[in-house]
Design a protein around this nucleic acid. Sequence first.
DNA 1: AAACGCGACAACCGCTCCTTG
DNA 2: ACAAGGAGCGGTTGTCGCGTT
Length: 140
Amino acid sequence: MVRKKSYTKGNLKRGAWTAHEDKLLYDYIMSHGLGKWRSLPIKAGLNRCGKSCRLRWLNYLRPDIKRGNITEEEEDLIVRLHKLLGNRWSLIAGRLPGRTDNEIKNYWNTCLRKKLTSKTLLSPADTGTKSNDIPVPIFN
DNA sequence: AAACGCGACAACCGCTCCTTG
DNA sequence: ACAAGGAGCGGTTGTCGCGTT
């Protein structure tokens, strides 16, 4: 299937979001709700592509979002879910209320992977295979 | 005090999946 | 049934701040 590129660099702004842009996006979604991401930036007066708006909303602006301070409990859950699901970050995020796939993915790639590999090096016999026995809590 | 290295995180990009006409 | 467009996902990159030398 041939697809038109949805992301055109054109005149659209890229890079870090400003407080003003955040406010425009937040206010628009608060008063109109989530709708078509493609047309949203135009209606909200943002010079961004819909993709960028979606990412910003999901990973940063959403009111129910928890940021930082991943607890040991959450960390343990992430590890178990990762054993179970692999790199299905959105599925893992779905089991952790208030956490985003991007945050979990970042956390995994920076902290956890390192922790786990060092653990693995220390105790190679203790890896994998038992994951399916571990009950995973389901939120929602 | 400056240079450098590294970790953390936000955002981009390309691809696939899903929905609709 | 098929094609096209929109939405979502996962990998990767860029940047910033902090600690170390």
